[in-house]
Design a protein around this nucleic acid. Structure first.
Lengths: 193, 193
DNA sequence: TCTTTGTTAGTGAGTGTTAACAAACATAAT
DNA sequence: ATTATGTTTGTTAACACTCACTAACAAAGA
């Protein structure tokens, strides 16, 4: 119907793909359903993406866009303590505004089907690891942190974020993630700073 | 071909279903592929399970069997410190022996498609939560632990286990999980005991 | 006029599931 | 011990449906 540029259409398609996965899991993401929701025909989808894998790749790009935003937000914070706080709270603020992203942002399984997807996923994961690691190392240099193995500590932080988001999702989002973020930050202050 | 009792056949089918998911993700679990691997016809599958959902339910039962084994193993330990250590190490020992279980034991997404599956999943999660919570509370009573919110601490522990298993899986199992378990235990001793 | 974005109609392959039938086994009567 | 009977576990063939994807064509915009 309405003619849109590829860029505009791609954005809409990826948005809707994420929504479909959020509502019914990855197995319910079909070109048919996607086309129906975007209100164009199925072949029109293929004007803007090579194939289904290419659409899933688009979702991964969204995820790495999030990571870019996270970095920019972290750069504004000066102390390593505030950076760690922002690392946690940025996740929670973002997911509270974009609930549907909870279904893909930590869903590695979706992206393990093909070599291309797996490689992009690994890049994102490595990049995240580097990000949190550098925050911890900086805090260690300034001796503001207990002497715990850096990679282990990074897994504790990301692990707690993930478990909190999972709990939030399973409870049908019936508590404030951001509030929880503050209490998590306090816990970490007690534990490691 | 070979005639087996329903119980025997069910076990084989669930085993193979877990293998298929491990190798190709949930989307590659089809009745066709399952029947081929078990070396019986597709309709024969339906002699032992009501439908596909029933098979996935069988996988969930496997997972709750694991939790039962975990409880028994925990009961043998006396101090709360040793219980926490066993909680972590039992996971790692089990998964090192059953690598294919890494693909389903923390894969909530697979079990979110239907009401029945979701309810059973929730039961398992609640049960796990109670298990780790009781260990922490016991340690707190004996004042062997820092005063940190119990549910938050439980999420830290499970979160770290999950992140470690994820890292192990993504690395194609190229390090010893059990060794990592020991170093994790030491980290927790430094942090909370 | 040419490129881009859309359409309708259809492809072959795969999905979960069922009907109808056959052979293996367990049990009880001969 | 053999035979008859009923149940359980298997088979082949087919069902309607959905899947990702394509060929051929139309209309909108530059």
């Amino acid at each position: 119907m309405a003619r849109l540029s590829t860029e505009e259409r791609q954005k809409i398609i990826i948005d809707e793909a994420i929504n479909i996965i959020h509502e019914g899991g990855y197995e319910s993401l079909s070109i048919r359903e996607l086309a129906k929701r975007v209100k164009i025909s199925e072949p029109a989808i293929y004007r803007h993406f090579l194939n289904k894998e290419d659409i899933v790749l688009g979702i991964l790009t969204r995820i790495s866009d999030f990571d870019q935003q996270l970095i920019q937000s972290l750069n504004k914070k000066k102390t390593s303590q505030k950076k760690l706080n922002e690392f946690i709270c940025f996740h929670f603020k973002f997911l509270e505004k974009n609930k549907n992203m909870t279904s893909v942002i930590f869903a590695e399984d979706i992206f393990m089907q093909s070599k291309i997807l797996k490689e992009k996923l690994m890049k994102i994961i490595m990049h995240r690891q580097k990000l949190i690691t550098s925050i911890i190392e900086e805090a260690k240099e300034k001796k503001k942190i207990k002497n715990i193995d850096t990679t282990e500590l990074s897994k504790i932080i990301i692990g707690l974020i993930r478990m909190t988001v999972l709990e939030w999702k399973l409870s049908d989002f019936n508590f404030s993630l951001v509030k929880k973020g503050n209490s998590i930050t306090k816990t970490f202050e007690k534990l490691i700073f």
